[in-house]
Design a protein around this nucleic acid. Structure first.
Lengths: 230, 230
DNA sequence: AAAATAGTGTCTTTGAGACATTATCTA
DNA sequence: TAGATAATGTCTCAAAGACACTATTTT
């Protein structure tokens, strides 16, 4: 059985890695950094960092999220994704990664910071996933899959929209993430029929084309009953 | 930014804790141990253990699962649940716990092993959740919630059944976990209509009462389209 | 006016639930 | 035979999708 005598415990670290997504129709984008240091210097990777002593896992993820996107907490969705702990996933030493999934709306340019040469929003279609550092191909895949699935049965899509949005903008989030087209009329009715999904602001948006649309804010509901289907 | 110079990294360990569930109508049961050692000696807790060097997270969880239940791998469902890493969740030192959720069918008596005075299957209704050691109340809640949710849109319920089961047995899993009653006729039709949910064995089960039921094995599908509703 | 998008109305089809009916066993 | 559970059939109602139609803007 495992002992907890800490002098016998191996050297080990915990980090967080983030799959930060945004939707810019017709693309879903992920924030990637080009690593400044070894291991994997020069390679693209998910942003992340070691969890500091006395730092909660979520706080660590939040710190990375804010540092890389420049987006205020509270204007982004952040949830734990999964943990990855293969003994040799990091060549330096054993590092268990607690991955987080974040969604932000219309972020400014990504911020490289000290650990990256570059930081960029990249279309997920054009990412050479297998070239990512560490086991980040796996983490990215898990993040994208989770995001796609959660759109169906949660109100998460609103976190890809700004504070005010039209039903058409919300629909384009779904269409972009799922790579499908949805009937505008039926989508409209279904969204308004889901209690707590969106609340009207009373004003309308000015667009370049077509009839101006009423705008909405995200509602208080988190789950979508009934779910929206793909 | 985080440094990776390992001499500066704090002492830290990673463990796995398991929410192991089984269904014995009319109860859902969870495997709990009574801790043999401090901290929390004498208190009930989820089974778990430290992750050993060179041991994968899943392997660590699997080892605990087999050790406590006596069930062969392959006859149990095991999935990662979430990670819990509050800095003071363990009074000894910083310990990040990667929690796993397991489901087993009709297990034998639980095995205490060396780290527990007792190990028992306990009805989840009768667990004094707030008395559990560490942050295990939170982990248990997350496990139960996940299990209940996944019955709806996955074929997971079959992992609470033996290798061969009747539709009625499968239905009682749903009824037990959700605490509801389901229409036997409609349930029957919906299960058989879900492609890949169950496959007929060709034989029938002998029961004490009523007409003998055809038996089925778990099918190859993992997700349930359309989902079964509560 | 034409084009584009927002929003509403309506019809059809599908699927879920309620419940009756038939089948096959044990006590 | 009575009672119990399995399995099938049928009816009704509600929701989803297809699509026609109206509304309001820009060019």
């Amino acid at each position: 059985m495992a002992r907890h005598d800490d002098t016998r415990l191996p050297r080990l670290a915990v980090c967080t890695d983030l799959v930060i997504l945004t939707v810019r129709p017709p693309s879903v984008q992920v924030l990637l950094i080009e690593r400044a240091q070894d291991p994997f210097a020069g390679r693209w990777a998910l942003p992340g960092g070691f969890v500091q002593p006395e730092q909660d896992l979520r706080s660590a993820a939040q710190a990375t999220l804010v540092a890389k996107t420049g987006v205020e907490i509270g204007r982004a969705h952040l949830e734990q994704l999964a943990s990855f702990g293969h003994p040799s996933r990091d060549p330096r030493m054993r590092v268990v990664s607690v991955a987080y999934l974040a969604m932000v709306a219309d972020p400014p340019a990504a911020i490289p910071g000290s650990d990256a040469k570059k930081a960029e929003w990249v279309d997920i279609e054009s990412v050479d996933r297998s070239a990512l550092a560490f086991d980040h191909p796996q983490i990215l895949a898990a993040g994208i899959e989770r995001a796609m699935a959660k759109l169906e049965y949660t109100t998460l899509a609103t976190s890809f929209c700004g504070s005010e949005f039209t039903i058409g903008e919300l629909r384009s989030v779904y269409e972009t993430v799922w790579g499908t087209t949805l009937d505008p009329a039926n989508f409209h009715r279904k969204v308004l029929a889901s209690a707590g999904f969106v609340v009207p602001t009373g004003s309308t948006s000015i667009k370049t084309k077509g009839r101006p649309a009423k705008t909405y804010r995200a509602g208080s509901a988190e789950t979508l009953v009934p779910p929206l289907q793909r």
